[in-house]
């Protein structure tokens, strides 16, 4: 019973910390992207495309944590 509680705690911590790191990274990405667009509005298209690609990379890191969290919840 106690191990199940630890698994639930660990799953919460896994997604929370993964989202923390990914959130910081995504904030940097979007902030710098907006800075670039406001500085050079004619390059908005290519900046936006690169930014979305970078966001997908960062998001994958958070999703690793989400998958681990799901496994911890459902495997117990």
């Amino acid at each position: 019973m106690e191990s199940v509680a630890y698994a639930w705690l660990a799953s919460g911590l896994a997604i929370g910390m993964a989202a923390l790191g990914a959130g910081i990274g995504m904030g940097y990405l979007v902030g710098k992207g907006l800075e670039g667009v406001s500085r050079q509005p004619e390059a908005a298209g290519s900046i936006q495309r690169l930014m979305v690609m970078g966001i997908a990379f960062v998001e994958a890191l958070a999703l690793y944590g989400l998958v681990i969290a799901f496994f911890l919840v459902f495997k117990t």
Partner: peptide
């Protein structure tokens, strides 16, 4: 492999 798998699994989950 893990990137594609994790994105699809997590989103549908």
């Amino acid at each position: 492999a893990v990137r594609l798998f994790a994105n699809m699994l997590a989103g549908h989950m």
